[in-house]
Design a protein around this nucleic acid. Sequence first.
DNA 1: AGGTACATGTAAGTAGTTACATGATTAC
DNA 2: GTAATCATGTAACTACTTACATGTACCT
Lengths: 162, 162
Amino acid sequence: MSGYALRQAISDVLGHFWSESFGQIYPTLAELRADGLVEVAQADKDSKPKFAITERGLEHLRARLSEPPQSERPRNGTLLRLFFGRRLGLDGCRDLLEQARRQAVEQLAGFEAIRREIQAGEPTGDHPFFLLTVSSGEHAARATAAWAEESLLVLDRIENQS
Amino acid sequence: MSGYALRQAISDVLGHFWSESFGQIYPTLAELRADGLVEVAQADKDSKPKFAITERGLEHLRARLSEPPQSERPRNGTLLRLFFGRRLGLDGCRDLLEQARRQAVEQLAGFEAIRREIQAGEPTGDHPFFLLTVSSGEHAARATAAWAEESLLVLDRIENQS
DNA sequence: AGGTACATGTAAGTAGTTACATGATTAC
DNA sequence: GTAATCATGTAACTACTTACATGTACCT
């Protein structure tokens, strides 16, 4: 595929757990090409040249996939704000939780649509693995929605107490 | 507190949703001081000087907390590897899921300990908000553990099918 | 005396985004 | 014909980590 299409695919398909920008994609693609891990192929004269992974690239990919995943540094702005909830005020907290809840519900609907789409297509050996990542999103979204709803009730109790 | 103690507090208390390094803390502290948002106070002659937030700093904090949280760029190495599970192989996937499960279970135990600690201390107005963030961690950890267990069963089914 | 924790700071390097520049192709 | 999308690329900048340098205080 083209670098442009690659980015599309990353944000469409991997969107909920990965992201890349053009400034990252094009230099990396050039580097991979110099290392012989991808090549530029042109199906026929009229078609545009597209990047494709080489045999060596596949080996390299398998090696990289086997490396232990390194945990990313956590940075959750919503939780940081809630931690200082007393300074922020109850209304601000409610807004944050309401937005988190809405976002989670929307995400969940999105994941369920993707799941149906995958299950409707003809089955390939990749599908079960795709579904694993979708399932992760569904679990996380459901958990976030439940937490936000619970937390909104907690805020109500705080207000009535004082 | 000191910059050192601040970092301790961040990794101990906010650890599951925030992180800062010394290279970030000290320059920022100096900048905040130049802006009059924190000051260096010395309780008595023999005690060490410590940073404390000023009245203006509190106002600034409140303003910053009210800014909408910006969503961080997603980057989940485990899910990326599982997405390419067919290339990685079933055993590699199982390792990833098993480790995710174990980590989640450990995290959950940690959160429950923190919750008990907070609830055992004498109640302050901040506690309910601290508990909100702990609860978020508990929900997320439980969801991750459930997803990993479910997914391990899915992998078993794939193996028996083929 | 020797190790661990406390404490502050900086320089080099890594990782990545944003914004810009440029142009082709497609859709209406 | 003109707006949107496809397509490639770079330069400047932001954010952040890691490693290093340095020293004090306390424990045993």
